Computed example of a mutant assay.
Amino acid sequence: MEFLEIPERTSGKRTYGLTSVIDLGTPIEELRNILNDFSHIIDIAKIGIGTAYITPNFQNKVNLYKKHNIKVYCGGTFFEKCYYQNKIPEYATYLHKLGIEWIEVSSGTLDIPIEERLNLIHLLKKDFHVIAEVGSKDASKEMTISEWKEEIQLLLDAGCKYVITEGRDSGTSGIYEKNGKIKSCLISELLEDIDSQKIIFEAPTPKHQMYFINEIGPNVNLGNVKMNDVLVLEAQRCGLRCETFYLEDQICKLPL
């Protein structure tokens, strides 16, 4: 029985309000139990770093995600390893054989020029839904706000379905300072010119997630969510945690 007034959430086959989990080696039986209970609040699964290449019975894991209508793709580090070794055609064949329809193009470890990434997207979007990532995993590499905006817009214009803002699974680079503090000025500037429904903000901790929910709303796209935090995140989105307690009041006061 539902009786509380809570923020309205997107549902079903969502195009925004996405929860993208990071799978860093979840055993398949454990995953099966998690998805039996929580698949309705998981939209995307990123098989983190390069673990897909060495995961036992990886096909079974891909099939399990797809059975629950969850989009699955391999993390950008795997893509960059293939790029570094000139194996992108082999990588595409590998994904096709697994039935994976999504691919990430990133430059988090390698410094792949934006022009080269755009060329790759042009080729890959013929066969895949492309997600691109902006930002470096090296916290010492800073991008200006204008560079962030320009890259994100170029990637969207090139045909990417979504653009991810780098944050790592630790929340210590990209849109975060080394100490984990969110670069709030950067986020505010991005939201001025770019449709937030097309951005997936990497937010690996509840603290990071709460910031984006309060800043953008319950239907913000969030990535690098830990598997065990999925239900807690949904509670936050619904105003059922102290830090998002008054969320529905804030939404009601927004101008039409």
Rank of each mutant, 00 (worst) to 15 (best):
R237H: 03
G167F: 10
I152Q: 09
C160E: 01
D111L: 10
K181P: 00
A132E: 01
C238E: 13
C238P: 00
V130K: 04
G180K: 11
V225C: 06
I152P: 08
L123N: 11
M143N: 12
Q209Y: 00
W148A: 09
S107H: 13
L222D: 01
F245T: 04
P113Y: 08
K198W: 01
C160G: 03
E192A: 10
S136M: 01
I200H: 02
Y246F: 14
P206I: 00
E177W: 04
N119M: 06
K207R: 13
E243P: 07
V220H: 05
N224D: 11
M143D: 06
I131E: 05
G167L: 10
K178V: 13
I213L: 09
D229E: 15
K198T: 03
L191R: 08
K207W: 01
K125F: 00
C242Q: 13
I121M: 03
I175N: 03
L222F: 05
Y162R: 06
N224C: 05
F201S: 02
M227W: 10
I182R: 04
G171K: 08
R168Q: 11
L156S: 07
N228C: 05
V232Q: 12
C238D: 03
E189H: 10
N221C: 07
G171C: 09
L124S: 01
E151V: 01
C238A: 13
E150H: 12
L233P: 00
L233N: 08
E248W: 05
A235W: 06
I199A: 07
F212S: 04
S173W: 01
H208G: 02
I182H: 03
N219L: 11
E115I: 11
C185G: 07
E189Y: 02
K161S: 13
D157T: 13
I216V: 15
E234V: 01
I131T: 04
V220G: 12
A235L: 14
H122E: 15
C238H: 04
I121C: 05
L155Q: 15
V232L: 15
G159L: 02
N219A: 11
I131G: 02
D229T: 07
D169Y: 07
E192K: 14
Y176P: 02
P218A: 14
N219Y: 06
K198C: 02
A203T: 14
N221G: 08
I182G: 04
N228E: 15
K207H: 14
D249C: 10
G108C: 09
L231A: 14
P206T: 09
E202Y: 07
S106H: 10
F212M: 04
E202Q: 11
D193E: 15
E133S: 09
L247W: 03
I112D: 05
E243T: 06
G171W: 12
